[in-house]
Simulated assay, not measured.
Amino acid sequence: MTYREVLHNVSFDEIVPLISRFDNGKENLASYKMLYDYLCHLHPEEQADKDKATTIHMLPSNEKRPEILLFDEYPNMTVWQDSLTRDLLLEPDIKGTLAEIAAHCLWAASFYGFTEYQVEAGYHKSTGHYSQELYRFLKIYNHHIPTIKEMLTIRAFHDKIKREIKDHRSFHPRKMDKGWEPSYLRKRNWRYWKRKEIKKEYTSNIYLKGSFIENLLVHGQNLIEPPTMKELSVLFKSSHCQIERWQTYTYNAAKRYGYFRDLIEKYNLLPTISLPNSFICISTSEKFPLVIEELELVTLIVGKRTGSNLFCIKTDNTLGEELRIDAAFYTV
C-alpha cells in the first residue's frame, strides 16, 4: 500500500486520538488537519518514488512512552508530492492499524513544517537565504527596522539570547581539562559564538516580520485600505510576535466557512495564541470572492483581544476556490 492510499483509507478524526502521542500534538491539531487535507488532494508525481519502498518497524513501549512506529527510510517529506507513490512495507510483527501508520506519516511530513509556506521558510533558513532577504528588507524598510543594538534593548529578544547562552554553556562548561583549550581561545570563541547567535536571531526576526509586511502591502490586490507601513512597523519592535498562515483545503468555495469554523472550534486553532494585538489579512480569488458570512471569521479570530486589531481583504488568484488568512499577533 502506498503512502497516498494509506491517507485515503482513514479519516482525520480516526487519526486525532493518535496525534496526542507526539510532542505538541494536541496543540497542533488544526495544523495536522490542514496538512492531511492538503496531502489527500495533492496529485502525486508518478515517477518520483514509485520504485522505492519504506519498511516500517515497531519500537516497543516502555515506562515513559507508548510503542511507536519507525521507518527505515523516511519518505522525502520536504517534497511531499514526490513521496505519495512510495510503498509502505510492514514488518511481520507490526500490528498497528492504518490510522496509526497514517498518524506517523503525518508526523514525518510535518518535520519541516505543516504548510508549503513553513517548509519554504525553513529551507531558506537552512540555506542562508535569510541573510540575503535581510539586506533586501533593510533597504526597503530602512527607517522602520531597529538595529541589532536597539533590538537588544527589547526585553524578550534579550532574554532569548540569554537562554541560548545558558544552553550553550551547559554543553561547553567554562572549566575544561587542562590543556584542552587555552583560556584566550575559549574567550575568543565564546565572543564569536555569541555574536553569531545574536545575528542569527536578528536575521530570523526581521525575515519573518518583513515577509509578512511585504505580503500585506505588495502581493495581490487590496480591496480595502491595508494598514499603513507606520502601523505595521510596530512588528519589528514588538516584544513577542506570532505569525500564522491558515488556508482552507476544501476545493469548494461553499465549504470554506464551515472548514474554518471546524479548525477554530473542533481542532483548537486559537487557544495557544494569547497576544492582545493583531493584523489579519483575508485573501480569496477574484472568481470566488469573500462572502459576508466569512467576515465573521475575523470576529472569531479576534475574540476577546483587547488591543489593536486591524484587518484587510485582498485578492490572490492563485488560491482558486480556497480562502487564506495571514495573521500576526504581537505585544508592544
Rank of each mutant, 00 (worst) to 15 (best):
M229D: 04
R245V: 06
F171T: 14
G210S: 03
Q221N: 13
P226V: 01
S183R: 10
T228Q: 01
K255V: 04
I165R: 11
E197R: 14
T228A: 07
D167R: 15
R191D: 06
R163Y: 01
K166N: 07
N215C: 05
E231C: 07
L208W: 01
K209W: 00
L223D: 05
F171S: 13
R174I: 13
T203M: 08
M176A: 01
G179F: 05
T203K: 04
N215R: 10
K162N: 10
I224C: 09
K199N: 13
F236L: 03
P182I: 02
E201Q: 15
M229L: 13
D167V: 09
T250N: 00
T203A: 09
L235R: 05
K255P: 12
G220R: 00
R191H: 14
E181N: 01
K166V: 12
S211I: 00
S233V: 12
S183L: 03
F171N: 15
G220P: 02
N222Y: 03
S170M: 08
S239C: 06
A253I: 01
W180Y: 05
Q242C: 02
S204Q: 06
H172S: 06
Y207E: 09
K162M: 12
L217F: 00
S211R: 01
L185A: 10
C241E: 02
E164M: 12
K175G: 01
A254R: 10
Q242S: 08
Y257G: 09
I224Y: 05
Y202N: 05
E214P: 00
T203R: 09
T250W: 05
E231K: 11
P226S: 09
E214F: 02
F212E: 00
P226Q: 11
T248V: 08
I213K: 03
T203P: 14
N252T: 07
E201N: 12
K196Y: 10
K196A: 14
T250I: 03
